[in-house]
Design a protein around this nucleic acid. Structure first.
Lengths: 341, 341
DNA sequence: CAGAAAATGATGGACGTACCTCAGGAATTG
DNA sequence: CAATTCCTGAGGTACGTCCATCATTTTCTG
């Protein structure tokens, strides 16, 4: 009737508790035949290890590090805030969190920080960083040391990460394309902005965006992507130039961060009201802009879900359990001024 | 250094383990002054109860009933599916779930089912039903018997429920208004449909919808709500009539269920492509219609979140703990064909 | 200041698992 | 068949918390 315990398995298999324990924890010194008997009993009764009790008994601590880009980035700030909240609620669940800030645009520095991690005092790492060959190697090293590794926000598809926690960026781009197409009415020119097209998420977003525009909104023409390379001044100057050049501009898709300068440039141009603007991530800035009707829609990923999913995945990987994919899919949310959280 | 335990608290506060236990579990028989001493020690050491050990020790079972409308309703089906998933996953460990189907539109029958519940074998109830005076009394009775009660999907603001788990329906209506305004271009007539304007969510949605339309889209005119009263034939007939009458119709807002007949009527009319259609809840039907471009956007509440939130709230109420409001706010999601989950 | 009542301490047994030791049985070897 | 290794059983302790009981101390009341 009730959940079967190790005792029930022992009785069912006709062996002692100690043997069941040895089998379940893959300890040596049990004959193949006996192992099979125990396994059969486990299957028959549908036994599942009570991880709560197991963790209690073995004094298990989950020690995870979150590698996040440092520097002024409102999205990362909200992520950190979410981590702070999670930390509070997860102490109770034996999870220790550590945040490792790394320079956003310096692959070598990121790798250096990863190498400096004390892997013996760590069970898992969540990494938010652009994919580079060096990073791939660093991730491989972490995996070899037996850590669980998840990619956060931006995927590392060619690195041996255990999982990617983040939205489908192609779908995000498609959604932006759909919204900008419907909001603009489908005629005119569109500007697409990002920090760098070398970053995986921007690439994918642009791809999705273009797909939808060309298939569903043939009246729209997307100009070549404008890249700021993390330089705010450059961003502001480029936007100013682009807006003043020609009257055909009807919409702007901001694929990355750097919305502060985008908005200030647009405000200066005086054309903010007429342009349809779609941006990513809900931050104090974009929230304000939504309310003020400066931005029409924001595509976001819920940082709370992001963090909780990352933690769940890291933990289940550490426990060697299978990941429940359906639960870990991060929703792509559309936020307008009317459904602000 | 390590996580403080109850033993550490006892030492720090200079009291015995038993007293710490009494304070932590709010058992009677402790002086105010002693309680304060223990609390101070808890704060000083940053003690957090180890939920693993606690759950293990207290072989507590939470017995909850979910009262849901029966009959053919795809949204309720997805809700039930989510309940099934929750039951399987660890979200619901030590939780016994029971689903109580009630006739959707018969207040007396609902109340009868509630009265028939064996309150001695139950710790909490989640109710999805329209608010009536009889229901209010029934909820009051459940509360008197010491059960936790939450309203699900549709609020019961005048009943003594502990919490409402669901979206802000005024905001949902506002969002629908915003989308239909932007998608249509802002000129023409709009049709609003529902099962019954007596149901609280429809009322609120219509209210939010009208607010936005009148303030932001003065070129749109919303016709009086069409009510089906749960009768599919009637729904189909009314839609057919409404669509054929006059050419000014540009959009449809379906506030309740009954999208099957709406779509079949629209298909028959041959005007499905040109009309902007906004509906509620993602079901196999609306998903299909989104992909086929028959519906432009769906406003949904994530049933998984709904269920998990309801369970969390019921559990914390049973434990007499405060509810963490921020975590329990259900997001209002906009789904288009490009960001389908 | 006695007696009652209230507050606190001491203690031990759960819960389900991990991990250890020790003894004795079984299988394998020569 | 004896000696040796290998398996297995029995039993214990621990993890952090809950909960119950009973003894003891402190505080309150008249």
């Amino acid at each position: 009737m009730n959940k079967p315990t190790v005792h029930d398995i022992a009785k069912e298999a006709g062996v002692s508790l100690a043997t069941v324990d040895r089998v379940l924890n893959a300890r040596p010194g049990v004959r193949e035949k006996t192992i099979a008997k125990v396994q059969a009993a486990v299957d028959r009764l549908g036994y599942v290890r009570d991880t709560f009790a197991a963790n209690l008994a073995r004094q298990r601590q989950y020690r995870f590090a979150f590698v996040l880009p440092e520097g002024p980035n409102q999205f990362v700030e909200t992520l950190k805030a979410a981590l702070g909240e999670a930390r509070a609620s997860q102490v109770a669940d034996r999870v220790l969190l550590k945040i490792v800030p790394v320079p956003a645009h310096d692959p070598h520095a990121i790798v250096r920080m990863l190498q400096r991690l004390d892997t013996s005092r760590l069970d898992g790492v969540a990494i938010m960083a652009p994919e580079t060959p060096q990073l791939r190697d660093a991730v491989a090293r972490l995996k070899e040391e037996g850590l669980a590794v998840v990619a956060l926000v931006s995927d590392l598809p060619n690195a041996p990460r255990d999982h990617f926690v983040g939205i489908n960026n192609v779908a995000a781009g498609r959604t932006a394309g759909f919204l900008i197409g419907r909001f603009t009415g489908g005629t005119g020119q569109i500007l697409a902005l990002t920090n760098s097209m070398r970053s995986r998420d921007s690439l994918e977003r642009r791809l999705g965006f273009d797909t939808v525009i060309s298939s569903d909104f043939s009246g729209l023409k997307v100009r070549p992507s404008i890249e700021s390379f993390g330089d705010p001044e450059r961003m502001e100057r480029l936007v100013r130039d682009a807006v003043s050049r020609g009257p055909g501009l009807v919409g702007i898709y901001s694929m990355g961060s750097g919305n502060t300068r985008l908005l200030s440039a647009l405000r200066a141009s005086g054309r903010l009201g007429e342009l349809v603007v779609i941006a990513h991530e809900l931050t104090p800035l974009t929230r304000r802009a939504l309310i003020d009707r400066e931005i029409d829609a924001v595509i976001m990923q819920n940082v709370g879900h992001l963090v909780r999913s990352a933690l769940r995945v890291l933990r289940t990987r550490c426990d060697g359990l299978p990941i429940f994919e359906a639960q870990e899919r991060i929703r792509l949310e559309i936020v307008t001024r009317e459904n602000l959280p």
